[in-house]
Simulated assay, not measured.
Amino acid sequence: MLKELIELGKAIIISIIAAFLIMTFVFETVSVDGHSMDPTLQHKNRLIVEKVSYYFREPKPEDIVVIKYPGDPREKFIKRVVAVGGDKVRIEDGKLYVNNIAKEEPYILETMDSQIDDNFQNDVEIPKGTIFVMGDNRNNSMDSRYPDVGFVKLKMVVGRAAFRIFPFSSFGKIN
């Protein structure tokens, strides 16, 4: 009886350690809180965030990433990478320009409100080791245009939103 309890205890400890390692280094689940990524992701969607790919490469434009909010790293944001270190960003008349080329963004909800554009200092170069992120719902997104988010350091990137697991009717890969 005692031997069986010891074996059970070992199995539980190994399972806890394995779960911790997987959640720390491989993937985790997150819930979308808010509407900043509409129409791509909706409030209360449940996602799997994979962490492995960013051990081998940096985030690239179009990736949907989970980041630690620079204003409070305990909080996480889900945003789309629109520019990376070395790129130059400008917002003009509700349109995003990266390296002086207007971005084609079929995924955004609506054109950016010019009042939001005014909060952002135009023609900025993204520092190396950082990314510039925006929500797909540009008029309802706290993102890199605002000083409390700003340029996101790569170490603040948790991972890439890979799959939607809830609602079941939208289950699948996230584009």
Rank of each mutant, 00 (worst) to 15 (best):
E62P: 00
Q42T: 06
S15Y: 03
E110V: 13
D93L: 06
K128T: 09
F132Q: 08
G85H: 01
V82M: 10
V66M: 11
P70H: 04
V98K: 02
Q121Y: 00
V89K: 00
E110S: 15
R80T: 11
N99C: 06
D123R: 05
E62H: 11
R74E: 14
S114C: 01
Q42S: 13
V84C: 11
I64L: 11
F120W: 12
I12N: 06
G71V: 02
V89I: 14
A11E: 09
D33K: 11
K51R: 11
E110K: 15
R80C: 08
I131P: 15
N45R: 07
L96C: 10
Y97G: 10
R74F: 01
G85W: 01
V30Q: 14
Q121G: 00
Y54L: 13
T130Q: 01
G34R: 09
E110I: 12
Q121A: 03
P106R: 03
E92T: 10
K76F: 04
R46Y: 08
F25D: 12
A83N: 08
R57W: 00
P106V: 06
M112E: 02
I78L: 07
F20S: 11
D33R: 07
D93K: 15
V32W: 02
M37T: 10
E105K: 06
N122G: 14
I78W: 02
I101L: 05
L47F: 09
I108T: 13
T29N: 04
A19P: 07
V98M: 03
D117N: 14
G94H: 04
I12P: 05
E92M: 13
V65K: 03
A102I: 12
V65G: 05
M37Q: 08
P39K: 05
F132P: 14
S114A: 12
K95M: 12
N119Q: 09
E58Q: 13
N45P: 07
I16K: 03
G85E: 07
G34A: 09
S31I: 14
